[in-house]
């Protein structure tokens, strides 16, 4: 039976229109709906399914961030995770928190909790880094199977189908390992109201990066955050000749 660690990140909800702060220091987060990173939901779902198949014995969810990160931990607990660990990082340190820091924290917790499998989402929808799984595997010196669209457990190994450019790759890896979940891995369940209530009784352990001996001091400085350029509106041309003339002007034919 394997012990599984999942990473969950609190991000601005996928349906929210992102607005950049006028002073270009970041995006507006006050009063904006947040939820669990969709790729992390897939990771949680996969862990819960492993437990339902009696492959996993215990699932631990970790979230690094301000106090509100506990909300996504509750969601994870409601989906079927057994225990939550909240690593509190807030203020300026949270603003410049990077996958490097998070992967150090995840690696440390993975060792402390003696887990056999780490599952995280392949990337978060806010910074789109796609680095945490890879670097966690690096710090632990474990095998890694990124962009998983299928996970099968053997005796002491896992067979993972990976989504790669133009097709699929099937790899077999020894345990312990780090897996990152791709979109097609599964369809995450909805955290129902009764389960959210029940999740309030499940334990959430609070830690600080200091407890884990991880330095979260900034490695980067945010110089400027800007909106992507807006698309020019289209034009309706009266006839084919004008269209061709315009295309020629633009050097497209």
């Amino acid at each position: 039976m394997a012990r599984v660690l999942v990473g969950v990140k609190r991000v601005i909800d996928y349906a929210v229109k992102i607005r950049v702060k006028p002073d270009k220091t970041g995006v507006v987060t006050d009063g904006v709906k947040h939820s669990m990173n969709p790729f992390d939901e897939i990771a949680v779902e996969e862990a819960v399914r492993l437990k339902e198949k009696k492959i996993a014995s215990e699932i631990i969810a970790v979230s690094c961030g301000p106090a509100q990160s506990q909300e996504v931990l509750r969601t994870a607990l409601a989906m079927g995770v057994d225990k939550g660990i909240h690593v509190e990082i807030s203020g300026p340190e949270y603003k410049t928190l990077q996958p490097l820091h998070v992967s150090k924290i995840l690696a440390k917790i993975a060792q402390n909790e003696k887990v056999d499998l780490v599952i995280v989402g392949k990337q978060a929808i806010d910074d789109d880094c796609n680095q945490t799984a890879q670097m966690t595997a690096g710090f632990l010196d474990w095998s890694q199977a990124t962009f998983a669209s299928k996970i099968e457990k053997g005796d002491n190994d896992i067979t993972v189908t990976r989504e790669i450019d133009g097709g699929l790759e099937v790899i077999k890896s020894k345990l312990p390992a780090v897996v990152s979940a791709d979109l097609r891995l599964n369809e995450p369940r909805y955290a129902t109201l009764p389960n959210i209530m029940k999740a309030k009784k499940k334990p959430i352990q609070k830690l600080t990066p200091k407890d884990l001996g991880v330095d979260v001091s900034p490695r980067i400085k945010i110089v400027s955050v800007e909106e992507p350029p807006t698309k020019q509106p289209g034009q309706i041309v009266p006839d084919v000749d004008t269209l061709i003339a315009k295309l020629k002007d633009a050097g497209l034919c």
């Binding site: 996928y14 349906a15 969709p38 790729f39 929808i125 979109l183 369809e187 995450p188 909805y190």
Partner: peptide, 16 residues
């Protein structure tokens, strides 16, 4: 539930 799941899946698929 199905609607929410599909909406999220489609949005992710379109974006990534």
């Amino acid at each position: 539930e199905a609607l929410y799941m599909l909406k999220k899946y489609r949005t992710m698929k379109r974006r990534y």
